[in-house]
Design a protein around this nucleic acid. Structure first.
Lengths: 171, 171
DNA sequence: AGAAAACAATCTGGAAACAGACGATTGACC
DNA sequence: GGTCAATCGTCTGTTTCCAGATTGTTTTCT
């Protein structure tokens, strides 16, 4: 007991030193340098929160924006195609399309050649809403990536593109 | 009605074309190039899944591993310090430390100088378990980032470090 | 000393993501 | 033609994450 008590005191002394700003303040930077996977996830969490906040302002969720954008770019799609291409889970895509349809931004019609699937089509209102939202994107990206130069942003895009095509971790 | 029917047929023709591999297959790549924020989040999701799968093998969760690692590096810490430094929410940290304590990998003792906080201390078993887990990290990183050269990994680390220190999106 | 603010850990409730099962429909195979 | 596997959209249960309230403790201010 006595030994434990002394030991505890020593530990607490060490702990007080360790919890000072000197030792731990830079720990995360070191960790990020050693573990790029962790750095990637933490950066994503920050960016994701910023994107959600921005989406709250425009009134279009991130997923909804992406769906409208893809529909405008490639024409009517099945929910399956939207899911796979945008990396949004099928069951989540149901709710995304529900919301869009409730606001008359997309239309859902059964494909007569394969009545299992829908053809999801963007409406005129949807195009207009998308155009408005698109205008806010450059400002948002500047806010999120203003710490990077244009060249560095291209570098990041290239590197992320390579990681995304990694078949050994593709989901 | 007839007009609608014809219109629908046209839409479905477009849709059939659009769902062919040609038009949509590269859509996500284009999107990722245009929206680095989305690319970052999607890459993080892939990496995170891979990390969880790897954690399932070692038997140590990602958060648990990080906590042990930090405790080994800087000595006993409060849960608050662990939370802030590792960017893990306080309420989540409770469960992480609970699990670690139940497996005798850490010890929780009240700090006698401030009984609000714990001193979380790594045990010998914890050090051993950490050492085992650390050995598997290089292989894991190779699996996740094998598409990147060593130079590119350094680039990515640097860029992510800058994004992480962006005070305008820090959470 | 006593009141009030700040803080550490915990608990609780709601929102989002994901896996798995399901009904309806289609295509493949014999 | 009939059976079986595969596919599309949907639903359900689980898990995780986070915001906010709560309790016990400390510090600060008067």
């Amino acid at each position: 007991m006595t030994e434990n008590h002394l030991l505890s005191n020593n530990l607490y002394q060490d702990w007080l030193i360790a919890s000072g700003t000197m030792t731990t303040a830079k720990y995360f930077a070191d960790l990020a340098a050693e573990r790029p996977d962790i750095a990637l996830c933490r950066a994503s969490a920050s960016v994701s929160r910023a994107a959600d906040a921005h989406a709250g302002v425009t009134g279009l969720g991130v997923g909804q924006h992406l769906v409208l954008k893809m529909l405008a770019a490639v024409g009517p799609c099945s929910q399956q195609a939207l899911s796979e291409e945008l990396r949004i889970d099928r069951s989540v895509m149901v709710g995304v399309c529900d919301d869009l349809e409730n606001h008359d931004l997309v239309r859902r019609e059964r494909n007569p050649r394969d009545r299992r699937s829908y053809a999801v089509t963007i409406t005129d209102t949807g195009r207009q809403r998308l155009a408005e939202a698109e205008q806010t994107i450059p400002g948002f990206l500047d806010q999120v990536f203003h710490v990077l130069s244009a060249q560095e942003r291209d570098q990041l895009t290239t590197l992320l593109g390579k990681v995304l095509t990694n078949r050994r971790i593709a989901g």
